[in-house]
């Protein structure tokens, strides 16, 4: 097992992190617990149509940057809302004051006192970490809706081959910003076996930041739980991840 560097400040990258108990399952839970959750879903679609949200990778990165406490406390659609608000603010398509004023109006109509209004608008949900400097280069994808891309060049790795995943620091080299990636921390610096090849796809690491689609080959890599967690692993467990070629290197 590899000794890991201290975790980056990313509340979303929770895979393998200790300290969590049993999931709270409610078999009777509706698809949307309240209408506002569906409204957030519809707003996500609408910001895509308006070009405020350029692509899913940019949206995911915005959600990942919401206030670390709000990320879980506000729930799934709550953090989506924080992500949407972040995108609107960063695109200069919304003024924070305008939204706060509207929240205040609604709250007063429901009987809130001025003290309660002040508390409500102080509730922070938007990005607490800055986007990377390149984000203004984002332009709506010509291929909006699909992230599959044809690649003429063959992939570097073959099914059955052993590969090693890189460290997160290698992906964000030359910048102090926390960048979007789809390599979870628990699967960094480990050796696994390529079990499937999915051809070419847009690379989220660049696409989220306006650094272009940089399509690359995508593989499913199988890791034994022992490789990931050493002696504390459960027996006979294999974990599979879909990993982009730049996350991988050949083992010697």
């Amino acid at each position: 097992m590899t000794q890991r560097a201290p975790s980056r400040q990313s509340p979303h990258d929770v895979g393998g992190k200790p300290g969590y108990g049993a999931p709270k399952v409610d078999p009777a839970a509706p698809v949307f617990a309240a209408r506002w959750e569906a409204a957030v879903f519809a707003m996500m679609r609408c910001l895509g149509a308006q070009g405020v949200m350029k692509n899913t990778d940019q949206f995911r990165h915005a959600v990942e940057r919401v206030d670390a406490r709000a990320y879980y406390a506000h729930g799934y659609y709550g953090r989506w809302l924080g992500g949407l608000e972040t995108l609107l603010l960063e695109a200069d398509a919304l003024k924070r004051d305008a939204l706060d004023d509207r929240v205040g109006d609604f709250a007063r109509q429901l009987g809130a006192s001025e003290a309660e209004v002040a508390e409500l608008v102080a509730e922070h949900n938007v990005a607490s970490r800055p986007r990377s400097a390149q984000a203004e280069r984002l332009s709506a994808s010509l291929n909006a809706g699909s992230s599959v891309r044809y690649l003429a060049a063959p992939g570097l790795y073959e099914i059955g081959q052993q590969v090693r995943t890189c460290e997160l620091a290698e992906l964000s080299a030359a910048t102090s910003d926390i960048r979007h990636t789809r390599l979870p921390e628990y699967a960094t610096g480990v050796v696994g076996e390529v079990v499937a090849w999915h051809r070419g796809w847009v690379l989220p690491d660049t696409n989220a930041h306006g650094d272009g689609e940089q399509p690359c080959h995508l593989y499913t890599v199988r890791f034994t739980a022992q490789a990931l967690y050493g002696d504390s692993a459960e027996a006979s467990v294999q974990v599979h991840l879909d990993l982009f070629e730049p996350y991988l290197s050949a083992t010697v």
Partner: peptide, 29 residues
């Protein structure tokens, strides 16, 4: 008052006023 619900409803109303969103789209979802 649920601060997240209020904020979502406030943003929804702003986007509806702009003509970016229709209430019926929420019903469709």
């Amino acid at each position: 008052l649920d601060p997240v619900a209020l904020r979502a409803e406030a943003l929804e109303s702003i986007l509806i006023e702009r003509g970016w969103l229709k209430s019926a789209q929420v019903d469709d979802v």
